[in-house]
Design a protein around this nucleic acid. Sequence first.
DNA 1: CTGAAAGCGCTTACAG
DNA 2: CTGAAAGCGCTTACAG
Lengths: 341, 341
Amino acid sequence: MTRRPTLMSVAQLAGVSTPTVSKVLNGRDDVAPGTRSRVRQALDELGYESPVQRRMHQTGPALVDLVFDGLKTPYSIELLRGIIGHSAGQDVEIVLSQVTPAQLRRIDTGEWAARVAGSGRKGLILVTSEVSESQLREFDRHGVPVVVIDPLNPPRTGLVSVGATNWAGGKAATEHLIGLGHTRIAHMGGPAAAECSQARLHGFFAAMMAHGIPVDSDYLTDGSFDTATGVRAMERLLELDTPPTAVFAGNDAIALGALQVARSRGVRVPADMSIVGFDGTHLAEHAVPPLTSVAQPLQDMGRTALRTIIRLAGGESLESYHVELATELVIRESTAAPPDK
Amino acid sequence: MTRRPTLMSVAQLAGVSTPTVSKVLNGRDDVAPGTRSRVRQALDELGYESPVQRRMHQTGPALVDLVFDGLKTPYSIELLRGIIGHSAGQDVEIVLSQVTPAQLRRIDTGEWAARVAGSGRKGLILVTSEVSESQLREFDRHGVPVVVIDPLNPPRTGLVSVGATNWAGGKAATEHLIGLGHTRIAHMGGPAAAECSQARLHGFFAAMMAHGIPVDSDYLTDGSFDTATGVRAMERLLELDTPPTAVFAGNDAIALGALQVARSRGVRVPADMSIVGFDGTHLAEHAVPPLTSVAQPLQDMGRTALRTIIRLAGGESLESYHVELATELVIRESTAAPPDK
DNA sequence: CTGAAAGCGCTTACAG
DNA sequence: CTGAAAGCGCTTACAG
C-alpha cells in the first residue's frame, strides 16, 4: 500500500524543501511564482490533504442543515421522519433547527450562508419558508445547495423545491364531493398568499367549472393552516341563509376545526355535511368520524429533498428544479351524499 | 496574555507526562481511572481544546447529538420540541438521528464514542434507551457526556438521566379514580421491564393499598406503549365475569386503544367505564371524549436534558444524577363516578 | 527566494 | 499503568 502524501513526499516530487511546500499551502507570498505552481501541481498529483481536511473527511458523515418554521404540526413531523429515516442509510447527519418566518426575514443571510459553508455543511433544507431571490444568491455564492419543501412563494429562478400535486389534489377532493351529489361546496383555504393554498383552491375551481357548478363567493374563506381558522370559517358558513352541504378544507387542521363546530351545533358529519381535509396526517385518520383527506406523501417528500441536496452537494445537475410528488384522495367516513332537501 | 493550553501545560497541572494526557484525550484504555479523572480535571480547568476542537469552535455553535429510538409518538415529538426550542437560545445545534433498540445493541460503542468525540460533539442525549454500564464507560472514556431521558433500565452508577415523577403520577391517577368511587380498577401497563412502567404500576398499588382496596390480578396487564396493547387489554377485561369500572393506562396510546374497544362494544366512557391515560399528549386532548391523563412536562424534560449536557460539557458537576420533573393529573371527560350496580 | 536547522505539539512503541 | 525517548508532520526564524 502507498503511504498517504506528506509535505515531505510533495516536496520531493516538486524538487523543493518542505518549508517551501508549507509556505505554498499557507498562502505565504515569499515563494517564486514558478516554484509555487510546481508545488501546486505536485500537491494535486499526490492528492495531498492537510490534517484538518483529512479530519473533516474522515470525521464521518456529512452534515445537512434542516430548518423548520415550526415543529408543531403532524405535517412537519412526517416530513422530518422521512428525512431522518432516509439519512440513516446515507452517511448523512441532520442538524435540526427551527427558524420562525419573522426570524428568517430579520436574519443576515450572508453571514448565515458563510457560517453554513464554513462549517462544512453540505446543504440546507428549508420547510415551508419564503426565500427571497437575494437570499438564494447568498447561499449560491457560498456554494451551499438549498432545497425548499413546499415553498410559500412561487418558484423563482434557481429555487430548487419539492412539493406535491396540490392542484390535482384539490381537484380530486372536489370531484369526489361532486360525485356524491354535492353542488353547494365551500372551500376553506389556508394562507391566501401561499403557493400551495392557491393551487388547491384552483384545483377546486377547475372541478367546479368542469361540472358547470357556479362558485358562491360566500363559500370561499381563507386564514391559516390551523384549527381556529376552521372554527371561524364553519361558524360563518352555518350562519348563511343557504349553508353549503360540503366543505373542502385546505388542510386537516382546518377540517378538524370545521368538524368541531359542526358537532357542537348538532350538524351531523357526514349525514348533514361532508368534510374533506388535506395532508392525510393522523389528524384525519383519528378524527371522529375519520376524515376523508387528500394525502400528501410527506415522508417521500422529505426523502426526496434530502436526496436532492446530496446530489447537488455531489456536483450533479438536476433534470428539474421542482419535483412534485403525487397526492392521493383517501376516502374515509366524513363524506357522503348530501341530505335530501 | 496567557498562552493557550498545550498537552504540556495540562500534563504539568495534572502531575503526569504528556503521553498520558494524549492517551486520555484519545480514549485509550491503558490509563488508570484515577489518573484519567485527574487529567480530565486539568483539561477542564485549563480549557484545553484539541486542534480539531479549536477548528470546530471558531466554526460556530457546539453540536449535541440527539438520538431517538423512534420518532413515531407524540411523546418523542414533544421532547424534541423542548430540546430544539431550548437550543435556539443556547448557541448549540442539534444533530438528530434515530437508532432502534436493536441497532443500539449491535453497535460498536467504542467506535461510536470515538467518532462523537472526534467530531467535536459536546455530548449525547439518548431518549428511552437501554444503556449498559460498559457502553456508558466507553463514552466516559472519550469524555463524551451522556444524558438519558426516561432510561429503560434502572439508573446505574454514573448514568445521568432525566425523567418525571412516574410513581407519584400513577398514584395521583389512581387516587382520582378512587375518589370518584371506583374500586374495580384495572391497570394496563406498558413494557413490564421498563423502569417508568414499574414506577407507574407501583404508584397504582400504593394508592390502592392506602385505601385498602384489593388488587385483582386479572386487572393487571402489560405489553407495549401502543394502541394495540390497549385494544387487547380492553378486550380481555370486558370478557371477565366482573369487568373493572375504571382503567388506568400506562400511556395515552394504550388508553386510546382501550377507548376504541369500549366504544365499539357499546361501553360508554365515562358513564360505564372511566379511563385515565399517561403522558398528557395531544392524543389525550383530542380523543373523543377527551382523556383524563397524567401529563408529563415533556418539553421541560427535553430542555433539562440539553441544559444538563451543556453543563457537563462545560465541566460543571451536577448536584444530582437523576432529575425528576413533576407530573400533573389533567382531568378531562373520560372519568366519572362508576355506574350504579 | 530558498532551505538547513530548530522548534512545536502531539503520538507511538516500548522498557520498566 | 506510566513516562522517557524517539518519531511524525508541520511551521517558523533566519542565514545566505
